[in-house]
Design a protein around this nucleic acid. Sequence first.
RNA 1: CGCGGGGUAGAGCAAUGGCAGCUCGCAAGGCUCAUAACCUUGAGGUUGGCGGUUCGAGUCCGCCCCCCGCAACCA
Length: 481
Amino acid sequence: MPEITKPEKFYITTPIYYVNDKPHIGTAYTTIAADVLARFYRFSGTPTFFLTGTDEHGSKIERAAKAAGKTPEEFTHEMSAKFSFAWNSLGIAPDDFIRTTEKRHERAVIQFLELLKKSGKVYEGEYQGLYCVGHEAFLREGDLDANGLCPDHKTKPELLKEKNWFFKLSDYGQILEERIRVGEFIIEPESRRNEIIAFIEQGLEDVAISRPNVKWGIKVPWDQSQTVYVWVDALFNYISVLGFPEGEKYKQFWPADVHIVGKDITRFHCIIWPALLEAAGIPWPKKVFAHGFFTINGQKISKSLGNVIDPNDLVAKYGADTVRYFLLREIPFGQDGDFSLEKLAARYEGDLANGLGNLFSRLTTLIANNLDGHLPDMVHSPRSFDEVDEMLQEFRFHEALARIWEEVAWANKYIDETKPWESAKKNPKLFEEVISNLVALLYEVAKKLAPYMPETAEAIRSGLSAERVAKAEPLFPRLEK
RNA sequence: CGCGGGGUAGAGCAAUGGCAGCUCGCAAGGCUCAUAACCUUGAGGUUGGCGGUUCGAGUCCGCCCCCCGCAACCA
C-alpha cells in the first residue's frame, strides 16, 4: 500500500486576487485545487490552515474605483465580497480570508519593512523609465508601438525619473540557487524550477519596493511620502494573516507547506519572496507549485475578446461539484489546458451522469426493490485504490480522478456480469454478496472523492446509510441543452 | 542564434528504446437493475517532414516546418 505522508501541520495558500476584476474561471481553478488539498489533509487529521484573500492596494484599484464612482474603500469592499461569494458557492472553505486593506495586515507589513530596513538591504535610488500619463505608469520599450508611442493612448511617453526605495535582490542569487538545487526550497513542476534557475543564473537586478505617486497603499514607515509597492504588500499576506510576529498561528503554521500560484507569478514567489524573507530573517516557504493556464476554446482568456467565464454561471447550471471535478479532471495540474463549455458538458454527461450518477441509481434501486431498503452485512471494499491519496498529495488530481473512475467502470461491469436482477429471485445469497460488495465499493469511492466533490460524497454516504435505502434521486440529473 | 511547451485515429490525450493504447464520437451486437443509462465487439494510424544511431525509434541525435505561451517591477 502506498505510504501517505502525514506532516505535523499543513499550511496552504492561493495567491490573493487583485480586485480590479471579478473572479473568473482561472482564479477559481487555483482556489479549488487548494481547497481539495486542504480538505484532504483536514480529513486525515493533520492540523490544516488554508488561506486565500484579496489584494486591494495600488494605482489600478484607485483608478478602477474612480471609474466606478466609488471611494477605494467602498470599491474594494464590494469586490472582495464577490470573491468570498464565488468561493463559497464553489464549496471552497478557507480557514481565513485576508484583505490587504485590513489593519492586521497593514500592521504586520510595517513591522516586516522595518526588519528589512534593519537588514541593510534597502537603499534609496532612482528609477528611470518611460512614463505614460494616460496609464499613470511606466511602460517598457517593448510595450510601445512602431512609432514609439503608447499603443493605448497614442501619446509619446516622457522620460521620467522617480525616487524609490530599492531592495538589494542582486545579493541573493547564490543562496536562492543553492537552496533550490539541494531541495530545501522546492519549485514544482520541474519545468518551472528549471526556468527559475536559468533566470537566476542570468544575474538578478535590484527591485523597487516603494512608489512615490501612489496614494492607495501602505505608507513606508520611515518615509511617509512613499507607499509600499503592491507586490511586497501582497506577498506578505501569507504571514500577516498568521499574526506575525507573535501570533500563535504564526508559530504553529509558518513556514507555508505550499504556495499554489499561477505560472505568471512564479518569479515573485520563487525569487523575490524568499529573498525578502531571508533579509528579514524569516524562514522560507517549503514549496511553490505553479499550475498552468488554460485557454477558452483555444483562445487566451481576455476581457477584450469577451470570453471571460464567470464561475457563478457554471455553478448555477451544473453545481459546484461538477465545476470542481471538471477543472481538476480535464487539465493536468501544472500544465496548460483548454476550457470549453462543450468539454464541461461532455464530462458532466459521460463521467458524472452516465458514470457515477447512474451507478448509484442502479445500486439504490436494487436495494430498495429487493431488500426492502435494508443493507446486507457490511464487507470490506472488493477493490483497493489507496494510490489516489498519493496522487493527490503530488498534485496529480487528474490521475487520481481517472483512477477513481476506473472503479466506477469496474462496478458497472460487475453488475452486468453478476446480473443481480436475476439472482435477487433465484439466489438471494449471491444477490446479497453482490450488493455488499457494491455498497462497500461506493463507500470507498465516496471517501476518496470527498476532497474533490464534497456534496456528492455526502449524498452517496447518506443515501447508503439511511434506515431504509430508497431509490435515489439522480446525483447528476440530465440537463436541457 | 532570446526562453519554454507542443505536433500520435474524426476530436481530446497516453505510451522506463521492445506487439502504438485510453476517453469521446462512429458502426454492429447484448442486457433490462439503472438518469435513452450499462456491457461486449469492430472500423479508424506513413506517430509534422528529411536524414542518422540501433537487432529494434513515437521515444535517442542532427537539420527543417508548423502551433502556443513567456520575455523582471504585469498579482
